[in-house]
């Protein structure tokens, strides 16, 4: 009986560790590591589940304020069990400003040089309305003086 209990405990702890590695704090740690040298500002938790089979493509939206003359980085990390990588899009109203899925290529991150302070929307989804969990991190790469904005 003791052996069975020990194995059961081990199984439960493995399940909990795996869940955490898939969608919990471990995933955030990974995203923070992949953020690189920029300054951590905020993180976003993406956890999309299809309620029914005929549900349209699911998405989750967060609003963020971005400041002018500031260079931001948005990077994502996907849960181990995801069938698809997360698509992250930055919108100004209805206008898409940037995406990590660009010209048929999937990027782990994108950077955005903001030149107007206002509220933007960050939208996350999976291709084909797939389910999945991911973490995204918004960080600050650089702040520019007025004369430094020549790209």
């Amino acid at each position: 009986m003791k052996k069975i209990l020990a194995i059961a405990l081990l199984l439960v702890s493995v399940v909990y560790t795996t869940i955490d590695a898939q969608c919990g704090d471990d995933l955030l740690k990974k995203a923070l590591k992949e953020m690189g040298d920029s300054q951590y500002m905020k993180d976003f938790n993406v956890d999309l589940t299809n309620v029914s089979k005929d549900t349209k493509t699911g998405y989750i939206k967060f609003s963020v304020i971005l400041n002018s003359r500031t260079h931001y980085k948005f990077n994502t990390t996907d849960g181990l069990g995801n069938s698809e990588k997360v698509i992250m899009q930055l919108y100004d109203g209805d206008k898409m400003m940037a995406s990590n899925y660009d010209s048929g290529k999937m990027y782990q991150s994108f950077e955005f040089v903001c030149r107007k302070s206002k509220v933007y929307n960050l939208v996350f989804s999976y291709q084909g309305g797939a389910e999945g969990c991911s973490k995204a991190v918004m960080s600050m790469v650089k702040q520019y003086a007025e004369g430094e904005m020549n790209f």
């Binding site: 002018s68 930055l90 100004d92 400003m97 940037a98 990590n100 660009d102 990027y107 991150s109 994108f110 950077e111 955005f112 040089v113 903001c114 030149r115 107007k116 302070s117 904005m149 790209f151």
Partner: peptide, 11 residues
Amino acid sequence: GTLIIVQDEIS
């Protein structure tokens, strides 16, 4: 390998 977008609006 990093995609950088520079906004068109300037305030």
